[in-house]
């Protein structure tokens, strides 16, 4: 019994050390999209921030190196009111430059392939990047991705030289089509945009991450830090979120929480978690327990014995 136990402990130890050697490599490898390495696996959206100042603090606290921006019509100058709201909005551009954060323009608000393609082309011209977060949304109530339109637009944009990061639903087959179309990453939703409901279908997210030849970034639905950690534990390569930070009561604190959650989830995903058991398993040695009144208590049972 004692010999068997020692042997199994030894073999377990050697397995564990092999696993941790392998995972050290993947922890050190940064998130790389289309050949560009990013220092953070957290992509922060900028929508919903109360002010640029609050946004700046949250961006810094999040540690993000990639941040989404939307493309919108410039405000027409109104007589008498110098510097309309557009002045404040356009300075998001200066803010990202100052912080050294790469912009990821999106096609938010596009319902058709044509709208999305033109918006992407405008974004490339305005932002000086061929990276685009592709969104072709089915309707303005659910805000769910239109799979057919997204795949069609992705093909057009890839052919046009874009680095395409498509927002998609949590369907593994659509994700495969997008990767086949040449997308640089796929970004499945956890739950609907702005809902904060977390990851509604973790098995699908896990399946997408397991099969994808390109990085998988969970996009939309994150409400709190545990959602972000779960996304990483399911095998995602990164997390994109906005509202969870910008609409938190304390956005800076939540941004920091998200940074730590993404790091923790990534480490956990590659640390080789322990197997789940149906029954308890003591972690303290069974031998050498104190005796009270001359008895050593009940005989050690299987669960205590196994603890060695």
């Amino acid at each position: 019994m004692g010999t068997t136990s020692t042997t199994s402990t030894t073999s377990t130890t050697s397995t564990t050390s092999t696993t941790s050697t392998t995972s050290t490599t993947s922890i050190d490898a940064p998130l790389t999209i289309a050949g560009t390495s990013l220092g953070s696996r957290l992509v922060l959206g900028t929508g919903g921030a109360a002010s640029l100042l609050a946004l700046e603090d949250a961006l810094v606290a999040s540690g993000t190196e990639l941040t989404t921006v939307a493309m919108r019509r410039v405000a027409r100058p109104t007589p008498g009111a110098a510097g309309p709201a557009a002045t404040g909005d356009t300075s998001i551009w200066g803010l990202l430059e100052r912080l050294g954060i790469r912009p990821l323009p999106n096609t938010a608000g596009c319902f058709t392939v044509r709208e999305a393609v033109l918006t992407a082309q405008l974004a490339r011209e305005a932002c000086g990047t061929d990276w685009i977060k592709l969104e072709v949304v089915a309707d303005d109530v659910t805000l769910l991705p239109d799979p057919a339109g997204t795949v069609e637009a992705a093909r057009i944009l890839v052919d046009d030289g874009f680095t395409v990061l498509p927002y998609t639903n949590d369907d593994p087959v659509t994700a495969r089509h997008l990767a086949d179309a040449g997308c640089a990453a796929v970004m499945p939703l956890g739950s609907p945009i702005g809902s904060g409901l977390g990851i509604a279908n973790p098995r699908n997210i896990e399946a997408i991450a397991a099969a994808s030849p390109v990085p998988v970034i969970l996009d939309a639905g994150i409400g709190t830090a545990s959602d972000a950690a779960l996304a990483m534990e399911l095998g995602c390569d990164g997390v994109l979120l906005a509202t969870a930070v910008t609409r938190a009561a304390d956005p800076v604190r939540m941004a920091r929480a998200m940074r730590l959650a993404v790091e923790a989830g990534h480490d956990a995903a590659h640390a080789g978690r322990m197997p789940r058991r149906e029954r308890a398993l003591a972690s303290s040695p069974a031998d050498g327990r104190v005796a009270v009144g001359g008895a050593t208590g009940p005989d050690a049972r299987d669960n205590l014995d196994l603890a060695l």
Partner: peptide, 30 residues
């Protein structure tokens, strides 16, 4: 008219009556 005008062509591209023009910039979002 639904086609991007590259910045290098701005000087020689003239806006005339009847044309549809979109002028956009990056704003917070997404």
């Amino acid at each position: 008219d639904d086609a991007v005008v590259p910045r290098g062509a701005w000087d020689r591209t003239e806006i005339r009556p009847g044309m549809r023009v979109e002028v956009v910039t990056a704003v917070q979002g997404g």
